[in-house]
Design a protein around this nucleic acid. Structure first.
Length: 744
DNA sequence: TAGCGCCCCCTGCTGGA
DNA sequence: TCCAGCAGGGGGCGCTA
C-alpha cells in the first residue's frame, strides 16, 4: 500500500510569520477542508522526500474519507495541490542546533512550535485541554521545513510552523501561493480559507502578499474595507508581519455574516482550494485552537520587534503579528474594538485599552446595572463590567466593527447593547453570549468595549500561555491569568456566531415580555435593529390557536418563571427541556409546559407533540421560500440559516425535544432526534465497528468516525523536537512578559 | 431541469466509564 | 482511552412541478 503521505492537506491559503529572533523560523497557518486524511507513516528519513507530486490523485490516499471525494472535490484538491511539489530536504538548523530525526521523533509532540521535516505530520492542540485538537503536517514543497496542518480528519483548520532555510530559494514548482510565501521568507501567510472564500490563486496570492507585507499597525488602523481593498502593504522594517488582506478575507469575512447572508454569500467566487466551505464557527474553533501556538508566535514577534518606540505599538503589533490567524483575529478584534469608527491610531487605542479598562475580564454578577443608554461609547466601555474573554467576542468585535463600518451605524449597535444592559445588567446568565456581543457591539460602536476587546486579545494569548503552563507569577500576571483562564474557559464554548442572539432575542423577548408583563422595566425597546437580518414574520402568535386541543397556553405564565424563557441562559441548542416551563395551574399544582421560544411567539403547550406541530406548522412551514433560520430564543446558531428546510426541521428537534427515532431493542428505551444518531446507537447493540483505523498496521475499529479520527491522531503524535520546544518556550515567556508589561 | 425533501456520511465536541 | 451521544455541514439521490 502506498504510504499515505499523500498530502492533500495543503492549502495555499496560509500565512506565515517569521521571527527575526529565530532566523529561519516562521509560523504559517494553513487550512482547508480539503485537508482530508492522510499522514505520513514516518518511514522517511530526515530530509527525505516529501509530499505528493502534482499529478497524484486522491485515489492514492489511504483515507477513510477517500470515497467521499467527489469530482468537484478532486478538482479542488488538484487545483489546490497541483502547484505543490516535493523536494528533498537537507537537515536544517534550528537555533544553532540541527534537528535530527531523533529529535523530531522525541520532542515534537507537544505541538507548540515545532519543526518538522517535510512530509511529517504531528498532532498539535491536543494539549489544549482537548480543545480543538489539530495536527500539523509538513508539506513544504520548497527547501523549507514546515509544520503544517495534518491532512487527517481534523482538517478544518491548519496551522503550520514553517522554517525557512536562510538563503533557500523558493521551490521552483511552487504554485502561485507557494511562490508568494517562498519569495517572502520572513512573512506571514494567513490562511484565507476560513471558509468563505478565498478564491482563486491570483486573488489569493495578491491578498496573501498583502498580508505578508503589511504591518500590524497599518492593518489595524484600517477599516475592513480598506483591508479588503488594499491587499498590498509595505513590509514593516522589522519584518514583523502582518495582518493584512488575509485578515480581511479570512478573518473578517467569515465573521461578517451579520448581513443575514449565509456564509456562502460571502464568497462570490468559489475557492479552488477548499472543496468545502468552512463555517464561521468552525473557523473560530480553529483559531482558538491555535491560541497557544499563537502565544508562542506572539512572543517571537515581540522579540523580533523589540525596539519599541511606543510600548503599545510594539506590544500590540507583536501580539497581533505573532498570533495565529485565530488569535490574531481575536487580538485584532480586541484592539479594533477600541477603535472608533473614525479610528484613532492603533497605538493610542490600544493604549486606552490597556489603561482604561481592567486587564482582567472580570465578570461580576454583582456589577451595578449599566448606566443610561446614552453614554458615550467610551463610557460604555468603562462601564462594561462584564467582559468575558470570549475569543468569539473578539471575533464579533471585528465582525461588528466591520459590518457597522459599512452598513450599520455604531449607535445602533450601542443602543442595542444599552438595551441589553438595561434589561438585564451586565452579567446575567446569558453573559457569555451577550457579553461577547456586547464587546463586539461596542467595538462596532466605535470604541465601546474597547477594554474588553483589548483584554480579549490578551486573554487569548494568556489563554494559550496558560495552556502551556508558562505563566509568570505576579499580580499582573495573575490578573491576566484570570482573564486568560476565562478566555480559555470561553474558548471551549460554542463559538459565537456572526452576531449574538442576544440583541434581537433579548429585544424581542424583553420587548415582548415587557409588554406582556406590563412593563416591568418600563423601558421601551426599539422595535428594530438596523443591522439585523430579516426577522421572522410577525406571526402574532398571541392570537394563534395551536393545533392541539385548547390551543396554546400563552406565556403569561412567565410572570412566574421568566428567566428560562428569556433566554438568559445560553440554552442555545441546549438541553432538552430547556423549552419547558413550570406553570402553576389551578389548585396550585405545577405543570410543565412546552413553551415555544420562537421569537415573538409565546405559545405553550402541555404536550410536546403539540409544540412540535406548532413549530413545524407555524414557524417552519411559513418560512416557505425564506431562508431557513432558527429564531428560537437562545439558539446557538444565531440566526444562521440552514440551507434546507429539512435541516431546520431537524434542528428544531433540539429545541422541542422531539426524538422520533427510538431504539427498537428491548430494554433500550433510548430515543434520538436524528436517525443517524440512532444508527450509531444501534452499533452499540450490534457491536458493529465500521470505522477502521487507516494507519498502516493498526487494525483498530471504531463505531464512529470521530473516535477513529481521534485515534488516528495518536499515530501522528510521534515526533518531537526539543530545540523547537525550547524556542517556543522562550518565545512564549517573552510574550507573556510583554503582555504583563503592557497591561501594567 | 431546478427545487425540494430526505437521507447518508463525515466531523467536532462533550461526558462518562 | 474508549464508548456513546448530540449536532452541524456537505453532498447524493429521488421525486415533482
Amino acid at each position: 500500500m502506498q504510504n499515505p503521505s499523500a498530502l492533500f492537506g495543503m492549502v495555499s491559503h496560509c500565512q506565515t510569520q517569521t521571527f527575526s529572533d529565530f532566523p529561519g523560523l516562521s509560523l504559517s497557518v494553513y487550512g482547508s477542508k480539503a485537508d482530508l486524511c492522510s499522514w505520513r507513516a514516518g518511514n522517511g528519513g530526515f530530509g527525505s522526500q516529501i509530499c505528493r507530486s502534482p499529478n497524484e490523485t486522491p485515489t492514492h490516499m489511504n483515507c477513510a474519507s477517500q470515497k467521499r471525494f467527489s469530482a468537484s472535490e478532486e478538482k479542488a484538491h488538484h487545483a489546490a495541490k497541483a502547484p505543490r511539489s516535493c523536494l528533498s530536504l537537507p537537515p536544517v538548523q534550528v537555533n544553532g542546533a540541527y534537528c535530527s530525526e531523533k529529535d523530531l521523533d522525541t520532542e515534537l509532540g507537544d505541538a507548540e512550535g515545532t519543526l518538522m521535516r517535510c512530509g511529517q505530520s504531528l498532532l498539535v492542540g491536543g494539549h489544549l485541554g482537548g480543545l480543538y485538537t489539530q495536527s500539523l503536517h509538513c508539506d513544504r514543497p520548497t527547501p523549507d521545513l514546515i509544520l503544517q496542518d495534518g491532512p487527517h480528519q481534523d482538517t478544518r483548520s491548519c496551522s503550520a510552523f514553517q522554517r525557512t532555510l536562510p538563503g533557500a530559494s523558493p521551490g521552483s514548482d511552487c504554485g502561485t501561493a507557494n511562490r508568494a510565501r517562498s519569495c517572502l521568507p520572513y512573512s506571514i501567510k494567513q490562511e484565507n480559507s476560513m471558509g468563505y472564500k478565498i478564491s482563486n490563486t491570483g486573488v489569493h496570492s495578491s491578498s496573501q502578499a498583502g498580508f505578508q507585507n503589511c504591518s500590524g499597525g497599518q492593518v489595524l488602523g484600517m477599516t475592513r474595507d480598506e483591508l479588503v481593498g488594499a491587499p498590498h502593504v509595505n513590509t514593516s522594517a522589522s519584518g514583523v508581519c502582518t495582518v493584512g488582506s488575509a485578515v480581511s478575507e479570512s478573518a473578517v469575512q467569515p465573521f461578517n455574516n451579520e448581513d443575514g447572508s449565509s456564509p456562502l454569500a460571502l464568497s462570490p467566487s468559489a475557492s479552488r482550494h477548499s472543496a468545502r466551505l468552512l463555517s464561521a464557527s468552525s473557523l473560530r474553533r480553529r483559531c482558538l485552537s491555535l491560541a497557544s501556538q499563537s502565544s508562542a508566535a506572539a512572543a517571537a514577534s515581540v522579540a523580533a520587534s523589540s525596539s519599541p518606540s511606543t510600548p503599545e505599538e510594539i506590544n500590540i503589533t507583536a501580539i497581533i503579528c505573532s498570533s495565529s490567524q485565530m488569535s490574531m483575529v481575536a487580538c485584532v478584534n480586541g484592539f479594533r474594538s477600541n477603535l472608533s469608527p473614525s479610528s484613532a491610531g492603533f497605538s493610542s487605542s490600544s493604549s486606552s485599552s490597556s489603561s482604561s479598562s481592567p486587564p482582567s475580564n472580570s465578570c461580576s454578577r454583582e456589577a451595578p446595572p449599566r448606566p443610561p443608554p446614552h453614554g458615550s461609547p467610551q463610557q460604555h466601555t468603562l462601564q462594561e463590567s462584564c467582559q468575558l474573554s470570549s475569543p468569539a467576542t473578539c471575533l464579533l468585535s471585528l465582525s461588528s466593527s466591520s459590518s457597522s463600518s459599512s452598513s450599520s451605524s455604531s449607535s445602533s449597535v450601542s443602543s442595542v447593547e444599552q438595551e441589553q444592559g438595561q434589561s438585564q445588567g451586565p452579567c446575567e446568565g446569558r453573559g457569555s453570549m451577550l457579553q461577547g456581543r456586547g464587546a463586539g457591539g461596542a467595538a462596532g460602536g466605535g470604541g465601546g468595549g474597547g477594554g474588553g476587546g483589548g483584554s480579549d486579545g490578551l486573554g487569548l494569548l494568556m489563554s494559550g500561555a496558560l495552556m502551556s503552563g508558562m505563566l509568570h507569577s505576579g499580580p499582573e500576571a495573575a490578573t491576566l491569568l484570570d482573564g486568560g483562564q476565562r478566555s480559555g474557559a470561553v474558548l471551549k464554548q460554542e463559538p459565537l456566531d456572526d452576531f449574538s442572539p442576544s440583541e434581537d432575542e433579548l429585544f424581542q423577548h424583553h420587548y415582548h415580555h415587557h409588554h406582556h408583563l406590563s412593563g416591568r422595566s418600563g423601558q421601551l425597546r426599539q422595535p428594530h435593529h438596523p443591522s439585523r437580518p430579516a426577522m421572522p414574520p410577525p406571526y402574532h402568535l398571541h392570537q394563534y390557536q395551536g393545533p392541539g386541543p385548547g390551543g396554546p397556553l400563552h406565556h403569561q405564565s412567565q410572570q412566574t418563571a421568566p428567566p428560562s424563557s428569556l433566554g438568559l441562559k445560553p440554552t442555545s441548542g441546549g438541553p432538552p427541556g430547556s423549552h419547558t416551563e413550570r406553570e402553576e395551574v389551578g389548585g396550585g399544582a405545577l405543570v410543565d409546559k412546552q413553551v415555544c421560544r420562537w421569537i415573538d411567539c409565546s405559545a405553550a403547550y402541555e404536550q410536546q407533540e403539540e409544540l412540535v406541530r406548532h413549530i413545524e406548522k407555524v414557524h417552519i412551514d411559513q418560512r416557505k421560500g425564506e431562508d431557513f433560520t432558527c429564531f428560537w430564543a437562545g439558539c446557538i446558531r444565531r440566526y444562521k440559516p440552514f440551507n434546507a428546510r429539512y435541516k431546520l426541521l431537524i434542528h428544531m428537534r433540539v429545541h422541542s425535544g422531539e426524538k422520533p427515532n427510538k431504539c427498537m431493542f428491548e430494554s433500550c428505551n433510548k430515543a434520538f432526534s436524528r436517525l443517524e444518531n440512532l444508527k450509531i446507537h444501534l452499533r452499540s447493540h450490534t457491536g458493529e465497528k465500521p470505522y477502521l483505523c487507516q494507519h498502516p498496521g493498526c487494525q483498530k475499529a471504531f463505531s464512529n468516525s470521530s473516535d477513529r479520527a481521534k485515534h488516528q491522531r495518536t499515530h501522528l503524535d510521534t515526533v518531537r523536537n526539543p530545540q523547537v520546544s525550547q524556542c517556543f518556550t522562550r518565545v512564549l515567556n517573552l510574550a507573556l512578559l510583554q503582555i504583563v508589561w503592557v497591561v501594567a
